[in-house]
Design a protein around this nucleic acid. Structure first.
Ligand code: MN
Ligand code: MN
Ligand code: ZN
Ligand code: ZN
Lengths: 145, 145
DNA sequence: TATATAATTGAGACTGATTCTCAATATCAT
DNA sequence: ATGATATTGAGAATCAGTCTCAATTATATA
């Protein structure tokens, strides 16, 4: 039982003359199962716990591969750390990031997206992607200020 | 003839029991005169060209000082490099960043800002600041694709 | 102005994240 | 199964930024 994302990923690899490897599949799996945004170090640490060895370099290489293919996205916490999430069957969204506990809320707003398009057009700027992050304190962290 | 921003900066320093130094003034000056967003390395390099020596550590320390005081803001290019701009008598704005040439266009939109407030409220999230960056190709770089 | 005190400084060591190198290994078309 | 080619992990290298600390400088006060 190979999941749909794995099939799609495999197609991408084939189409680029790249090979399907255990490491690449494990990393994709990890992202698919993650309940939150995960750092490269999370992936490296957890995949090495169980299953013998996977190198840090491979984690980064695979994340870039997924990102470039449009299968993963990254966000950045207030302290600069990067975290990833997969994009299979998930609509585009942006983030509110707690500066205290690094928890993340997701939001999306059609009006904002539309205005962005209009602004880009006005400036003859060809938008490829965007990042809209609101930093602040989440409900929980705000209470205990 | 001390500029208004320098006076305000001096007040900040005094109010915190910090000292007014040549290095801090030079860095503020550099930001005030810069025509574009500048990196810490730009500041370090250029200030050392002319005027004897100023350490990298001091550049970073002073940028953080200015940032925390609300006198400077940073943006991040597509490759991850950080750049700063001063905020004296400049209204809030967001950025469109060219992935080819790293040129930056500025925009601001009241509707977007308002919607952000509403979304934050809905999630009981206390917004402190935000970053809204559109990455793509500027008019010039788009032509020569 | 001289002195005392406390903040600031730059050099360079250090850190953490990421990238690079390369020889050994795994994948895949045939 | 074989051969051509892509991938791998270890560890070295890089890079931005931070830290440490002894020497220096700013400033309050006498
Ligand atoms: Mn998300
Ligand atoms: Mn700007
Ligand atoms: Zn929180
Ligand atoms: Zn451009």
């Amino acid at each position: 039982m190979k999941s749909e994302p794995h099939k799609v990923f495999e197609q991408l690899l084939n189409s680029k003359g790249l090979k399907v490897t255990k490491q690449r599949n494990d990393i994709l799996d990890y992202l698919l199962k993650a309940k939150k945004h995960v750092t490269p170090e999370d992936i490296y640490r957890d995949l090495n716990k169980k299953d013998a060895n996977i190198g840090r370099a491979t984690v980064f290489r695979t994340l870039h591969l997924l990102e470039n293919a449009g299968f993963a996205d990254k966000i950045q916490f207030a302290d600069g750390r990067l975290a990833y999430e997969h994009k299979f069957a998930r609509p585009h969204h942006d983030h509110m990031i707690c500066v205290e506990c690094s928890s993340v809320l997701e939001f999306s707003n059609a009006t904002i997206e539309k205005i962005q398009e209009e602004i880009s057009k006005k400036f003859m700027f060809k938008p490829l992607w965007h990042r809209h992050e609101i930093f602040g304190r989440c409900k929980k962290c705000n209470k205990m200020d």
